[in-house]
Amino acid sequence: MNKLLNKIENFDDFPTLPTIYYKLVDALSNTSTTIKDLSNLISTDIALSFKLLKIVNSSIYGLSTKVNSIDKAIFHLGFRELKNIILSTKIIEVFSDINSNSKFDLVEFWKHSIAVGAISRIIAQELGQKNLDEYLLSGITHDIGKLVLIKILGSDYNVVFIMMEKESISLLEAEQKVLGITHQEIGLKLAESWNLDPNILNVIRYHNDGLVGSNYDQLVGVVHISNILAKLLGLGHSGCGKVSQPNQLLWRRLDISKFDKESFYERIKTDYEQANEILIIN
């Protein structure tokens, strides 16, 4: 077991985000940046431009007119949402070199994360939130630490799954026991190295609890609920089988009980399928 711990402690090779993302962040922080500047920058990445247009034209956005240029896409999204979407697509690309094995399937992992993102986005929209793509991004990043651990340990990470099943403990407990570090902690390190927003750091750290310490945070709460619902619906697979009960304290602040269940479910199905089609690289 010490061997695994050593591997983790000596790991200093966190994956980096592509330069275009950092160029974009720079441009966005500059107040004189125009839509044209951004669209010129994005157009240098053909795959990204293509994905961006597909997302904006999907039913997830439900726009009434077709958006056929990057300029218009940026106009519809706004700068902040643009950054969230680009991060979502780039993070999935960064980890595309991970190998699946008998206990862990990368495509199923992303399907689960995208499901959490899509459900979070729908709930946020129903609750009247504006920054919807921050919810999508949160779903995509919530379990990112698992990928870091698998990147470092390869199939050695499976010891955690085996321990979890054998002793009927939670994934976090098994990680703590076997590795001395959890996917939440290492995910947080990665997100910090990427300089992600504090909101996203909170999601990575607290989504299993649902509360930030004892405080309510809508983003964290919604991701907590969506994570549970994605598991209940069997959308993708995150590597841990058990579906925990929602944190009951959350329901004091977050009320989704009046949602129309049929249209809610129909939307989840459509948005999930579309987001998968656009975001997952095969």
Partner: peptide, 13 residues
Amino acid sequence: ENDKLLFDVAVLS
């Protein structure tokens, strides 16, 4: 009711 909604959506699926 909130737990119930999650459960009902899962049943629907």
